[in-house]
Simulated assay, not measured.
Amino acid sequence: MLKNNQLFSFLLLTCLLFVGATAVHADDSDTHMNYQRGGAIVKPLDPLQPDPTKPVVPVDPTDPAGPPVGTGGSLSLDFASSFQFGNQAISTKDKTYYALAQEYTDFDGTKKKGPNYVQVTDVRGTAAGWELSVKQNGQFQTAEAQELKGAELIFNQGAMISNLSNTYAPSANTTFDLPLDAEINVATANTDKGIGTWLYRFGTNETTGAQAIQLKVPGKSVKYAKKYQTSLTWTLKDVP
């Protein structure tokens, strides 16, 4: 048995932030309100029905301590799923494996499963837009640097979801293949888009989410009965 065709995805790594404030005022009366750009860390939301008042606690299949805390700031990368492909039998046939669905505990303490996702929050108050990219940092390999040659990660059923109107939805790739060691743009919020918190999820529920992220491995790849892993870098930039 190959105990190990497992992807441990290293999370949220680069985020460029803006600092400052934008004011909104009432008109001619002496009653005023100033909106300041946000900056508190935003907790992960439910990928099935995101509600900012009901954060969830995701399970990180690669770290029992849980996922890293979000970057914080007025433009923030709040969360990115790690991917686990389970224990697989060694095979000389071409195989496609699927990342397990994201496990989490919802606001009411109920354990659930849903699609894997990446969460972005923009509370700069400028509606200037942003860009999300991802990079696979090398091929799957064992601790002894034995590579799983030809293995390829493919993301499907990508879509943006929020508690806000789709009028403000960023554009996002519905499907993409990850090249090795090359950053690719996967979601863009142009001016007046991507305001608030948006989840870039892969699949719409537990069932589709468990089929959305694929790991294709050629049968001709030499395989050892060991754990294989790689890492992903998600990068959030403040320019669309």
Rank of each mutant, 00 (worst) to 15 (best):
Y98H: 04
L12R: 10
V69Q: 15
Y104V: 09
L164I: 02
L75K: 11
L199H: 06
A89R: 11
I161A: 03
A212N: 00
K227G: 12
F79D: 09
I90E: 14
A101K: 02
T174Q: 14
K43D: 06
S29I: 05
T191C: 00
S29W: 08
P47H: 11
I161L: 07
L215E: 08
L180N: 02
E183R: 10
S29L: 04
R124S: 15
T230M: 08
S9E: 07
S231L: 06
N163F: 09
K43C: 02
K111D: 14
A182F: 00
I161P: 06
D192I: 08
A189D: 09
N5F: 13
A151M: 01
Q36Y: 14
Q88Y: 00
F176I: 03
G66H: 05
V19T: 14
Q139F: 00
D60H: 13
V69F: 00
G209I: 12
K54I: 02
V118A: 02
P64F: 11
Q84C: 13
G70D: 01
S82A: 09
S231E: 10
E147N: 08
H25W: 11
F18Y: 06
N156W: 04
T92C: 08
L178D: 02
E131G: 03
L199R: 00
K216S: 08
T174E: 14
A225D: 15
H25P: 00
V186I: 14
P50I: 11
N4A: 11
E152H: 11
V57G: 00
A26D: 05
N4T: 12
M160R: 07
A189H: 05
D51R: 09
G194N: 12
T71W: 10
S74P: 08
A172M: 10
P58C: 08
N185L: 12
T121L: 07
P68Q: 12
Y104E: 07
V123D: 12
F85K: 13
T174K: 15
F85D: 04
L45S: 01
M1W: 04
I41A: 10
V222Q: 14
T235Q: 09
D51C: 05
L164H: 10
G158F: 03
S221P: 06
I41K: 15
G114I: 00
A26C: 07
K223L: 11
N163G: 03
P47Y: 10
K226Q: 15
H25K: 12
P218N: 10
Y104S: 05
K111T: 14
I154M: 06
G109K: 04
D78Q: 04
S29N: 14
R37S: 15
E206K: 15
N185G: 10
V69N: 11
N5M: 14
N34V: 13
I154T: 09
P68G: 03
T31K: 14
E206T: 13
D78Y: 04
A80T: 02
